[in-house]
Nucleic acid binder design. Structure first.
Lengths: 204, 204
DNA sequence: TGTACATCAGTGAACGCGCGTTCACTGATGTAC
DNA sequence: TGTACATCAGTGAACGCGCGTTCACTGATGTAC
């Protein structure tokens, strides 16, 4: 019986030598373990069995919280899109500069690798999941909004293209950095790098 | 014994009902099968056994041509980078416009999905392979060269950043399109789309 | 306050699968003489 | 032109593995009365 840390009835954290039958917050624990596994080794390296072992639970337990592996990835991606949306919103409300929102997209990708690497892999996800769709649309709106604000009076098609160009640039930079295809690039200050790259966009 | 098509001694193509002991060009056949499998289902879906079966050979045969699975992926990526280099070179020599080279990058990604989806996945490759490195560097030079030509007199750092910005944009657009994250985008004329997106770069 | 009971969240064994790799082998090819 | 032989490119059986999922089950929890 492994030593484990749990929240007891009185609400205080206690370390016992016998694991309780119920985990306490297995769903949360699995999500966090999944994110850190993906960050360390990529989505392909994730196995439900290893995850269960890691959080100290039998390998069949995850089924009670996520229907299957795609369900787990979908929950990770949904949380990731919500996080991205919230962070971009905060930046936008703070500075009102689209440039800062774009820089933050890259920042998010690097600081939340475990989320980002799952979010744009539709083959891993239940694309039909309504929560996922809502979260995706919310995050996308946080790119469109600032772009639109910067070009009042433009037609929809033009806003759409400008958003796509901006998104392509930040997504491409994030992807190239994360995948290790830019070994020579100095990552001391990724925000500054993103800022310099985005300076090449006419939109900002 | 399966029916198979082979090149006989006289050099003519002939269909026989007994498979010859030697395949003829197993290496080529495996590469092509790999590319089309990746294009259809992604790199994760590729198995050496399935590939061997597909080209009508025992499942241990591929080892004689590629050390292992990473070796096969590395060969695919190398060929892909060489192809990309050659195609971009042709465009550059024809029009001399960086814009056209960038548009072709996206065109290549869409028309050679099976290559592109392997090329930027270092975790699948033998990064130390000298052929792969040569091919990667060659392709990268075909982005840098045109960018440099467009800004004679700029310092190296500035050229480097401009290249990174352009590459990020075309790579991001290609990635978003390929991964299915732009379901609403009209793909009737992807070259025109890429052209409109790239118009947002100051560089071009 | 106590008890019955439905529901929830775990367990652990088992199923069935496909995979990459290794191995001893054999058939085919091409080169030296 | 013929032959010996090294090398190359296949075969097919076997190994050992980890995986997702299913299943009958049990312990814990919380709610109705």
């Amino acid at each position: 019986v492994p030593t484990s840390t749990a929240i007891d009835a009185s609400g205080t954290t206690t370390t016992t030598s016998t694991a309780p039958y119920h985990h306490g917050d297995l769903r949360r624990a699995l999500l966090e373990a999944a994110v850190s596994t993906v960050a360390a080794s990529g989505p392909a390296a994730l196995s439900l069995r290893a995850l269960a072992a890691q959080v100290g639970v039998s390998h069949a337990a995850p089924v009670h919280h996520f229907k299957d592996k795609a369900g787990l990835f979908t929950a990770v991606a949904t949380e990731g899109f919500d996080l991205l949306h919230d962070e971009m919103t905060a930046v936008w409300e703070k500075t009102g500069q689209f440039l800062d929102v774009g820089v933050h997209y890259v920042h998010f990708a690097l600081s939340h690798k475990g989320y980002f690497e799952v979010m744009f892999r539709p083959e891993l996800l239940d694309q039909d999941d309504p929560d996922l769709q809502r979260a995706q649309e919310g995050a996308y709106a946080m790119l469109t909004g600032p772009v639109e604000a910067g070009r009042r009076g433009s037609d929809a098609q033009s806003v759409h293209l400008a958003t796509l160009a901006s998104w392509s640039t930040v997504h491409g930079l994030a992807t190239l950095l994360l995948s290790g295809n830019l070994p020579d690039v100095d990552l001391e200050d990724p925000d500054a790098l993103a800022r310099h790259v985005l300076a090449h966009l006419r939109v900002v």
